[in-house]
Amino acid sequence: MKRFFIQKLEGLLLLGLGLMIFKLYVSGHLTKLIAPKMIPYALTALFAFFVISLLRLKKQKQGRNHCDCHSIRESSASVLALKYSLFFIPIFLGFILTDFTLSGEVLAKRGMAQQQAQKQSSYDTGKHVNLENITVTDENYFEVLDELLNNLDTIKGKEIELSGFVYREDQFTKKQVAISRLSMSCCVVDATLYGYMLNGNVKGMKTNDWYTITGTLKKGSYKGEAVPVIDLKDAKKIKPPKETYLYENVQIIQ
């Protein structure tokens, strides 16, 4: 009898897990939690959950010798209920959450990633840096950052335009913010913050709001490391983009 109940309960939970992934996928929230390269795995799991859920919920023939492995024999009904109820946490979270941004104060604890200037860049060096006006997009974000770090002494006075959200740390002065992006390689757990220090009249820019800014580049520092810094010329508030994250693409063969 208990075995029967457990079997149905497992089927129901698998159905719930499948529905949760389905809902996040359809609403487009899934890429705010896991990187696009992980999505095929999640969708395969979704499919497998539905199949096994159906098989578990289907009425089983009686009299068959079931396997009684693991917890089924040892625990009482209430302990069992508690063990299974843990699975409702992720299911309901997936159903109810609509906002998946990490809060500003949580990000401040992580700090901005301090990229090292690469000895050897894998891109055509100078592709962006030699231009007088640099426009940063999602696609060239890391290329530009890399090149700027490699050519810190020659970038003074160049124009740059980029979008990102406002990030602050306690040590920042009133005239300092960072215009930043989050990047993930597998899921939100490894989210890493990249950004440019921004100097100027930034008082009115609220933490976590998105802006498109233009400014001039110069060499400056963040936590003792030499980094490109932007002197703010103009800032325009924008809506958060659909894809708020950058995704680090690992090319295994380079």
């Binding site: 996040l24 939690l33 946490i89 992720p90 939100v188």
Partner: peptide, 10 residues
């Protein structure tokens, strides 16, 4: 909660 859900889905 967001980080947990991300870790779980991954």
């Amino acid at each position: 909660l967001v980080v947990f859900l991300g870790l779980f889905l991954e």
